[in-house]
Design a protein around this nucleic acid. Structure first.
Lengths: 226, 226
DNA sequence: GTCTTCTGGAAAGCTTTACTTTCCACTACG
DNA sequence: CGTAGTGGAAAGTAAAGCTTTCCAGAAGAC
């Protein structure tokens, strides 16, 4: 398969493929002379992954390169997850580092309450603290008791994620699948939450409209099993 | 309060404030002559919201303007939620519209299975279909049965979200709070999931290491109550 | 009263990101 | 034999998100 085939199969312009090769996102093909290089099925797959991570996952080219570099290393699942997590952008600018630090206590408290064991160097600790700081400054305090139910949901989601990963037979591409589950399921969860918000809001509005604010509140989830 | 005070209080450069004014993100102040305009506490708050939505929420300036315009309209919660949802960027390029449409069936199936009532024009339907298409092309099929448990979690999250909104006493700024809950809690949930993934992965790896793959699997969640 | 600083407003400039285009010498292939 | 395709480098482009510069005029410090 030559570069024009790769372009046609993946729907990516040749110039863009060359760009990805230059940037190290796409491994070089097998050169067969000065003006011919062959590419394989793995390049098609890699190209699809690159497009998905950048367009859908919203990763920058640099972050994508880091993630791809991570999944090309043969590591155990935990290490792979760690490397993928580290490659993610968690922009916390240094200017407000001290204000973020205040929130770190709350983060530690939450982690302790959940019994979560998380590396002290995890960038996500600071990312969470930064978000909490923003919320606090906007007048929406989220304390441990507010966050706990969300954390339980996150834990349940993580269990689903890892269940899926455990059932993958292709051990060679486990890291790739891990990256996909971590990064491409994220927009899925976000959009599911928004869809659920619309429905839930509709249910509650309907209740408010029919009862006019008086009387006992009916179960807004009929036949829902909860 | 003059523009320099606003700059100092919010930590935003004067040039940037002028830029936001120009772009219509920040409402104009009260002019008191040709070279003096006064700003109020609401401008400080608005500026904080702008920074949070753009830096933390990852919204573009254009999307932020749309969201801010939406929350400035006095609407009921459902309508507000709708407008905020619509203002969000859900990039689905037209080139692959047909491939996305195939996945729409799966989306409809999921919505039906959850009993969710969602507007047919919701951009999130297409967004979800697009994500599923990406996953499918990458060799990870997510069918209704795979998505249902995630959808249940999303529904639970949405219930928590709306509980919070219902308890807000400041009805005037309800829309603002809705936008905050929808948009700024999203990175919180994402990072909670990642933290949970690390912990869950650690638990499962520890099991694999100690038992060497043989023997019955112990409960990986001791004293967890589930 | 004067000197310095700040102001509003407009325009131009800058930096980064993610490509896209152009160029060239060469070569596979119909 | 000609034409389309190729690798590789370099330059160009477009959008986003600010930042800088400019100006005339007004405020505040002394």
């Amino acid at each position: 398969m030559r570069i024009s085939d790769l372009s046609r199969l993946s729907g990516t312009p040749v110039g863009t493929i060359k760009y990805y090769l230059r940037e190290g996102l796409l491994p070089p093909g097998r050169p067969l002379g000065a003006t011919l290089t062959l590419y394989g099925e793995e390049h098609v797959q890699r190209l699809r992954l690159i497009r998905a991570l950048t367009s859908r996952g919203g990763l920058s080219i640099a972050a994508t390169r880091d993630v791809l570099a991570a999944i090309d290393q043969p590591l155990d699942p935990l290490a792979t997850l760690g490397v993928v997590h580290y490659a993610l952008p968690t922009p916390v600018d240094a200017a407000e580092a001290d204000a973020v630090d205040e929130q770190s206590l709350r983060v530690d408290e939450l982690l302790a309450a959940m019994g979560w064991e998380v590396s002290p160097e995890s960038p996500h600790r600071r990312a969470l603290a930064a978000s909490l700081m923003d919320l606090s400054r906007l007048g929406m305090e989220y304390g441990t008791e507010d966050l706990l139910p969300y954390a339980e949901l996150a834990a349940a989601a993580a269990r689903l994620d890892l269940d899926r990963l455990e059932n993958i037979e292709d051990r060679l591409r486990l890291a790739e699948h891990a990256a996909i589950v971590v990064l491409l399921l994220e927009p899925v969860l976000a959009v599911l939450r928004r869809l659920a918000q619309e429905d839930e809001s509709r249910r509650r509005t309907a209740w408010a409209r029919t009862t006019d604010g008086a009387g006992p509140r009916p179960d807004p989830h009929p036949a829902d099993g909860r």
